[in-house]
Amino acid sequence: MKKLLDIQIDEIGTFLERPNRFISHIRLDSGEEIIAHVHDTGRLTELLIPGSKVMIRRAKMDGKRKTQWDLIASITEDDQCVLINASFQRRIADKILNDESISPFGKCEKVKAEVKYGKSRLDYLIEKDNKNIWLESKGVSLSRNRRATFPASPSTRACKHLQELMCIKENGERAGVILLIFRESDIFEPMWEVDKKFSKLFYEAMDKGIEIYPIQIVLNKKGELFYSDKKILIEENKGDTK
Rank of each mutant, 00 (worst) to 15 (best):
E77L: 08
E77A: 14
D78N: 14
Q80H: 09
C81D: 02
V82C: 08
V82I: 10
L83N: 08
I84M: 08
I84Y: 10
N85W: 04
S87Q: 07
S87A: 04
F88R: 02
R91Q: 15
I92E: 02
A93C: 05
A93F: 08
A93V: 04
A93L: 03
D94H: 10
D94N: 14
I96V: 04
L97F: 15
N98D: 12
S101K: 12
S101I: 09
I102N: 05
I102K: 03
S103K: 04
S103E: 05
P104F: 01
F105E: 14
F105C: 04
F105P: 04
K107T: 13
K107C: 02
C108L: 08
K110S: 07
K110Q: 10
K112C: 07
K112G: 01
A113E: 14
A113V: 05
A113M: 08
E114W: 03
E114L: 01
V115L: 03
K119F: 06
S120M: 02
R121F: 05
L122F: 00
L122W: 00
L125A: 13
I126V: 07
E127H: 03
K128W: 08
K128P: 09
D129T: 10
D129A: 07
N130A: 12
N130W: 09
N130L: 09
K131D: 10
N132D: 15
I133Y: 00
I133M: 03
I133S: 03
I133H: 00
L135Q: 02
E136V: 06
E136M: 04
E136A: 07
K138V: 09
K138N: 10
K138R: 13
G139T: 12
S141Q: 12
R144V: 15
N145A: 06
N145I: 05
N145R: 10
R146P: 03
R147N: 13
A148E: 05
T149M: 09
F150T: 05
F150H: 14
P151A: 08
P151R: 11
A152Y: 02
P154Y: 13
P154V: 15
P154H: 09
T156N: 09
R157N: 15
A158H: 11
C159M: 12
H161V: 06
H161Q: 15
H161S: 13
L162T: 12
L162M: 12
Q163T: 13
L165E: 03
L165C: 07
M166L: 08
M166K: 08
M166A: 04
I168W: 03
I168T: 07
E170L: 12
E170N: 12
N171H: 13
G172D: 07
E173V: 05
E173S: 05
R174N: 15
A175D: 02
I178P: 04
I178E: 04
L180Q: 14
I181K: 03
I181N: 01
F182C: 00
F182G: 00
R183H: 10
E184N: 09
D186S: 11
D186Q: 11
D186E: 15
I187A: 02
E189P: 00
P190T: 06
D195A: 13
K196N: 10
K196Y: 13
K197H: 06
K197V: 10
